[in-house]
Amino acid sequence: MSLIAEFPPTSFVYADRIEDHDPPPAWLVALVKRARGLVLPLLLAAAWHWASSIDASMAYAFVPLDQVWERLLQLLSTGELAINAGSSLGRALTGLALGGLSGILLGSLMAGFPLVERLFGPLLQAFRQVPPLGWLPLVGLWLGSGEEAKQLLVAVAAFHPLLLNSYEGFAQAEKKHLEVGRVLMLSRWRSFRFILLPTALPSILTGVGQALAFAWISTIGVELLFGTGAGLGSLMHTAQMAGDMGVVLLCVISIGLMGYGLNLILSLVRARLLRWRVTG
């Protein structure tokens, strides 16, 4: 990057005259502009800290920030945060894989075979109305509160968005593209691989995004509600029972950061897979 491109020529001509009130460099302006976003969180943190100093009962809910910091160091050094975060992540991804793949499979079958759609469509539509965590008491009765129950609930949460989106994706395969496949005498497999799948891919990826969000929310939800085993939700559950706001706060932040990270990875994958699109 050349300097000339960054400064208008006039600042060279009059360089010695305007030296003492040179305009601040662009990066500094950008930094200050960005920093304005930090004002509100910092104010909130300050208010929080101030609230904690009023009296002991307030300090119970609004834990002093230095205590939160200590908790963080503690969770990190014992490896508790890593273990629980890893457990949640594994659960969410396994559920996404199990539920998502069955959703894609059934969705593509429903798009390809009207009979399958007529047989299962209305039933699945009815099941979809129950919020993922609404199944929890029933699944809890049947499977207890162990890993199978959690995994099933997360898988169900990931299932529906992918069922819906892959069905729509495969159903919108365009006649004009399929016709080209016929003229070129493509085999069934090639028609699927080169025409149907690419047509459905944007929709499927949208579904993966939704399913990922649902799987993550449900993972935290089932861990929180069952309160058993490892996981950020369980950690939060235990902390809530113990009145340990510091750990609860740290869990909330970790959950947000991890959800954000997962989303980011997915959007990178998406951009790569859909680079043939005009918008991509």
Binding site: I217, V252, G256
Partner: peptide, 19 residues
């Protein structure tokens, strides 16, 4: 701040709000 808080699923706020 709005964008950051938006990343956190509502359900994760339950324990905090209970406390």
């Amino acid at each position: 701040f709005f964008q950051a808080v938006r990343q956190v699923p509502s359900i994760a706020f339950l324990p905090m709000l209970i406390l």
